Simulated assay, not measured.
Amino acid sequence: MVHSRESEQFNTLKCTKFATISSNGFYVVKSICKDITVPPHDSRSELAILKKLSQGNEHTVKLLGYECEEEYLKLFLPLYDMDLDEYMRSCYRPPKKRSKRFNPYLSFTGAQDLEDQPQVCENQFDVNKHAHDFFLQLSSALQFIHSQGIIHRDVKPQNVLLNRTEEPRLVLTDFGISYDTLDPIQLQREDPNAKITDVSTSIYKAPELLFGVKNYKFAVDIWALLILISQWFQHEANLSFSILPAMVDDGSGQLEDGETGSDIRLIFSIFSNLGIPAITQWTEVEKYGSSEAFQGMFGSNGDGNYLLNKHRDDQLQTIHKLMPRLNEIQDNSTKSLIENCILGMITFDSCRRWSSKQIVHELTKPSL
């Protein structure tokens, strides 16, 4: 059990309005102000979930100890080298040759010459070495927490930790807004049929959240994982943007929009890339969500382009367009397994979306 000592020197790593994260070089302390409880943030539930998960899976963060003071709850957690977003960004490299031609459309950024302009970098994330392995590790983490009744509700690269080694082990962290479907106190505080929909971050929000479905379940984590893995398969990125490119876009961090993306822009991006289903194909929105808003904006009959209504060859063509580096996976068996998982995860109707258990089962099939 770890306890803090007043004489120890801690450096602040990150501050939010809900918590301060600091480290002494050996472990991390997450200090949560108990007086600031803004749902879905809940320090009591976070501690209970960490206790529950601390034994049983190597891909979820371990609680080393905690201290409950009058004003603060302090959680002691392992120190890692970086998060997955930092790792993914480190895989981007400037192109070998840069155009010498000045781009007038970038002049609004304030750049005085070519070298000052935002640079688009090439994604050199090793999809052959890491894509299947990382995918399986994250799916295993979700399978474990889902088996314990927990919806993470904020799966994103910043909430995945790792050490820089030859074969990194990924660890899911930050259960500050997670929901334990088996915790009577949390069920009383947040009705399972009227859960908060202002969860998840930016592009990682599941479609059902965007249309006000409050009785959502574990599938919101599966959609977030889908968007995360799509980031490995993009060709290039402007690293000045706060979020790396993915199969969908909400404008986050782009110069004209500031740091905050738009749910409306995300909805249009999802529908533009995957098509619009008929309302009868999306029963949870029809019965439990903002059905009138959906039909008012997009009609009730769909646009005829919904991905799940197409033949498999057309579906694969679409996902390869959205994730172009899929073609760089050299082992056809591995590529096929990943494609199968993506097609299982990409449905809008969360009841049909693959579970973490199904994904792990698919990814662990023996190679042909």
Rank of each mutant, 00 (worst) to 15 (best):
M1V: 12
S22V: 00
N24H: 05
G25P: 05
Y27A: 11
H41Y: 15
R44Q: 09
S45D: 15
E46F: 02
K52I: 06
S54N: 15
Q55G: 10
E58Y: 03
V61G: 03
L63I: 06
K74N: 15
D81F: 02
D83A: 08
P94E: 11
K96N: 11
K97S: 12
Y105G: 13
S107C: 13
F108L: 15
T109Q: 08
Q112D: 14
D116F: 14
F134S: 10
L136V: 10
H146R: 07
I151F: 13
D154K: 03
K156W: 02
P157Y: 04
Q158M: 07
Q158G: 14
V160A: 02
V171R: 12
I177E: 03
L187R: 14
Q188N: 15
A194H: 13
I196D: 14
V199P: 02
S200H: 02
E208F: 00
L210E: 02
F211M: 11
I222A: 01
I227W: 00
L228A: 06
L228V: 00
F241S: 06
P245E: 00
A246I: 05
G253S: 06
Q254F: 10
E256W: 04
S262T: 09
N273L: 01
I276F: 01
Y288V: 01
D313L: 04
Q315W: 00
T318K: 11
L322Q: 10
M323S: 04
P324E: 13
I329P: 08
N332I: 09
I338V: 05
L343Y: 00
C351E: 12
R353N: 01
